[in-house]
Design a protein around this nucleic acid. Structure first.
Lengths: 235, 235
DNA sequence: CGTATGATTGAGTAGCATCAATAGGCGTGG
DNA sequence: CCACGCCTATTGATGCTACTCAATCATACG
């Protein structure tokens, strides 16, 4: 469960360009969706568009706390290193979510943020948030919603993914991944990542999934999982 | 782990009066600490001061979502009922904390909020928050801080209180209770409440604490726990 | 084709849940 | 004041669950 990087993948980040929010085709779902264009034009500092490859770190606790990261596509995990060395995932962030909110309040990053696949983000300087703060109350409501969304997810991880038998937790996670992806077929997470999210070991997760496969409840092919008949009354 | 009430205690709530924020002796620590007095004077709706006895419910998921609860003294637990019938505590809120933030965003309550001891709160109508919203940017920062505080605690519950052996979790919880109360001696929670917070059974928690008592690491007397030498390398 | 990484499977064990019985604390009513 | 009932905490016995350690398999990549 350590955070060692796979060297079987590129682990790099690329500056794509300065973001042009006006032209962003998913602007209506993003943090700045509520802002009028003229506000976007007079920003003091640039919003950069950056691509991160799988397993690249966006930031960790030691990174200078200057930016929030608005995710355009892909998934990012937030994890916390525990005293005994291994880490636990406390959040999965996807398109429209914002990572690193705590720095807006002048705090340090509380997690390591790591790209789970290829990720496309807009990196927004905190000062931009502060600049726009007073001007636009809707942005604030948007920020509050981001926080609340995170809190909902954290509560869910506590009540559903960290409670009950291994079988229940794994089933629940698979259902959620399916719902998030709006499809019965979705990219699989690494077993170790599931384990870190569920508070189980890699082996236990593997056993549970193998069990579901044998029971005909799911199929896995090309790193993709398809749910077949995971009943909602999984014991 | 059901929510049945003890009948050995009064379980009632008492309206104390309309809150007078100007005279509140702990105003500087509360949600409205940043507001000038003139703002407080022209509120459209009353802020009520209410006292809840132990095990009284402030609200639950079915309660009409109209108020947030700013805690003046005492402790409130937020818990979620799980499908199998028992519940899990996802948050402990104390003086200065605000329960029910989600209703500000127009959502329903996501928890049952229950007084853990006698609790003194100010019940603030959401519309008051909305009314003051645009006027005072500092209030917003205060609200963001409340959300972030909750999120920090949720992350902590995931990484420290829901992970590791029963012994580790119980030790960690006792340390936190000590730190929260700024004293090695503090009011004990019921074993079942600790269990619900830690994702363990009442019996296991009892065994762990009994073990600590026998090891001379803590003393319990009159519902109060005193930590003696709970080393930080408790495994 | 060899190597590295992740997934699977097995065997053995520790830890926690479960079921059950007992003890202690507190309030109530005789 | 004491006895009783209720509730919580404790302790024991037992079995299952998930962890640990270890070996093997599968897959991707050079």
């Amino acid at each position: 469960m350590s955070s060692r990087r796979s060297n079987a993948f590129c682990t790099d980040s690329h500056w794509v360009g300065r973001s042009n929010c006006k032209l962003c085709h998913i602007r209506h779902t993003m943090l700045f969706s509520v802002l009028p264009e003229e506000d976007l034009e007079q920003l003091l500092l640039p919003i950069d568009n950056i691509r991160f490859d799988r397993y690249t770190q966006l930031y960790d606790e030691a990174t200078s706390p200057e930016h929030v990261y608005s995710i355009r596509s892909g998934w990012v995990k937030l994890e916390v290193r525990r005293s005994n060395g291994d880490s636990r995932i406390t959040r999965l962030l996807g398109p429209g979510d914002v990572a690193g909110l705590e720095v807006i309040l002048g705090k340090k990053y509380r997690h390591s943020a790591i790209a789970m696949g290829n990720v496309d983000i807009c990196r927004i300087p905190c000062s931009v948030i502060h600049q726009l703060n007073g001007q636009n109350p809707l942005l604030f409501k948007n920020l509050l919603s981001q926080w609340e969304k995170s809190l909902e997810q954290a509560d869910f991880i506590i009540t559903e993914l960290s409670t009950g038998t291994a079988r229940q937790r794994v089933s629940k996670l698979l259902h959620i991944l399916s719902r998030i992806n709006k499809s019965l077929t979705f990219d699989s997470m690494a077993r170790s990542e599931m384990a870190s999210l569920l508070g189980l070991t890699t082996e236990t997760v593997s056993r549970m999934i193998a069990e579901l496969k044998r029971a005909g409840s799911l199929v896995e092919k090309d790193q993709q999982i398809t749910l077949i008949s995971l009943d909602h009354h999984q014991d």
